[in-house]
């Protein structure tokens, strides 16, 4: 799970100081667990160096605040619209979608459709391979490919459910 994109997501909504970012990130990652504070500050340093984030100064309690630059916003939108390859884990897409919902991403529908296209491509390629293995009696490889297809089916069902609820 990417701390970088989690931070960009949270700063998209509003400015934050480091400790707030830690608490919000823990919540964004859900049950996947807590982020190490050191990791947040190293990532923030890198984001400032790359001009994706800047600091407008300190708040009234002298804590350093961070805000998103236009370049950071472009980076986040680009990432949201990039489908997760089928060999990636579904958690990667859940995280990305969670970030999209967090910022009320207006292109959520496009993002889901692109992910769906990626899955469908995988389904057709793997089914083709599966039929060849079936005809060649390659039982072990056939069952392995079948297992991958069951996972893709679950992912596709979930996207269909999200799309249906968006209507």
């Amino acid at each position: 799970m990417s701390v970088k994109y989690g931070i960009l997501t949270l700063l998209f909504r509003q400015t934050h100081h480091g400790y707030e970012l830690k608490l919000e990130l823990d919540s964004l990652l859900g049950i996947k667990g807590k982020v190490n504070p050191g990791q947040i500050y190293t990532t923030l340093d890198r984001l400032i160096r790359d001009e994706l984030v800047s600091s407008p100064g300190l708040d009234d309690q002298e804590r350093k605040r961070y805000e998103l630059n236009p370049k950071g916003k472009d980076e986040l939108v680009g990432w949201l619209l990039e489908p997760i390859p089928n060999h990636g884990t579904k958690d990667d897409f859940f995280f990305k979608w969670n970030c999209a919902r967090t910022i009320h991403f207006e292109q959520e529908k496009k993002m889901l459709e692109q992910q769906k296209a990626m899955i469908i491509e995988g389904v057709l390629e793997l089914t083709k391979l599966k039929t060849e293995l079936l005809l060649q009696n390659q039982e072990k490889r056939y069952l392995l490919i079948s297992g991958m297809l069951f996972h893709l089916e679950a992912d596709l069902n979930w996207i269909n459910q999200v799309e249906n609820r968006l209507r």
């Binding site: 459709e113 692109q114 769906k116 296209a117 990626m118 469908i120 491509e121 057709l124 390629e125 083709k128 799309e163």
Partner: peptide, 15 residues
Amino acid sequence: RKDGDYAKYLASFMA
């Protein structure tokens, strides 16, 4: 499967 954009087309067709 030879068409480059078939998956995208199917995804929007099935939406």
